Simulated assay, not measured.
Amino acid sequence: MTEPSFTALTAAAARAAHLVVDADPKIFTDDLAAPLLGGRAGELLAYHREHGDQPVLAGARTQVLVRSRYTEAQLGGLTQYVLLGAGLDTYAYRARGADVRVFEVDRPETQAWKRAQLARNGIPAPASVAYVPLDLESGDLVAALIGQGFDVSRPALVGWLGVTMYLTRPAIARTLAVLGGFAPGSQLVADYFLLPQLRDEAGASYAGLVAPVAAQRGEPWLSCFSPESLTDLLRDNGFGPVRHVRQHDHDVWPRTDALRPAGLSVLAHATVA
């Protein structure tokens, strides 16, 4: 069975490692991330256990934790949650009983791996989750969602995390054009990387260490933005108000462990007009 992308695996490992490496209070609690790593769990978590203070690993945890915390906090009042590039996200399995229909959009092979790990660990998929196998580059997102029960007349929260930096700007624009046609009041939370000249020292250092490795693994960073340029792109595609949330803006600082904010990854929070 084909593994998920290395990015999906390392994001899940970062969420899992936070619970055993970092101090209290926890930024985000995901006690199902480790089981979904399957046979890679020991290897991936060992890096964090043995080198938890290393800037790249601590930076990866920070990035993943604050974006997950912020995104899930926006669900209040919304009953449809679309995860684009869902990867090994576990919201649907942690939030049992919540009145939220979750649509996990991802490539079929990633979904097959995830469902196999869920079954292997005795984690049942609730009736509230719908799997939407789709390649965003070539598939019809709205048709695929409707086929799984998505109600286009009701607002939704769309989480698009850990994806935009691996897409070209035209591909990002095409997806935003679709999302901008969702019901008014729908919200999008998407993370993006700042342009090199806008990064602070910590962000530039992280990028200098991680970007070459990502490229070598076949996942090069293709798109970075200024807040202004991304705001323009969002507004051109049907979105109204846009808020840009930097790591420094989250209400989790200061901390006593190795987690520190950096000026690289920013969350864009936009509402369909």
Rank of each mutant, 00 (worst) to 15 (best):
E109D: 14
G159V: 02
A258K: 12
V210D: 01
E3L: 15
Y166K: 13
T231I: 00
P196G: 09
L78N: 10
L88K: 02
T71G: 09
F239V: 05
G162A: 09
T7D: 05
V242G: 01
F6E: 15
R243P: 03
Y91S: 15
L44N: 01
P241A: 12
V266F: 08
G39Q: 11
Y192M: 09
A273D: 14
F6T: 15
A119D: 08
V189F: 04
S229W: 07
R115D: 04
H269A: 10
L233G: 06
A58S: 13
A116V: 12
A215S: 13
C224W: 06
G87P: 08
G38K: 03
D106A: 09
R260P: 08
Q54I: 00
S5E: 07
R96Y: 09
V102R: 12
D251P: 11
V100E: 06
I27F: 01
R61P: 04
A127G: 12
I27E: 01
H244N: 13
G238A: 11
R67Q: 11
G77F: 01
D24M: 03
W113M: 00
Y70H: 14
T29I: 15
V189T: 12
A270M: 01
A143M: 03
D232M: 08
S186Y: 03
R96H: 12
V252W: 05
R67A: 10
R94Q: 10
G208Y: 07
F28G: 01
W113I: 03
T7H: 01
V272Y: 05
A33D: 06
G185A: 12
G139W: 04
I146G: 06
L32S: 02
E228N: 04
A125T: 15
R169K: 11
A119V: 11
G38F: 03
Y81F: 14
R243I: 04
N237M: 09
K26Y: 13
R260D: 02
R260H: 10
G218D: 13
T175F: 03
S138C: 00
Q111E: 14
E137M: 12
E72G: 07
R217F: 10
A73K: 07
H18P: 03
F150C: 05
P35I: 08
R107W: 09
P261S: 05
A144Q: 02
L195I: 03
T79R: 15
I27M: 11
V100D: 07
G39D: 15
A98F: 10
G122F: 10
L136Y: 01
E50F: 01
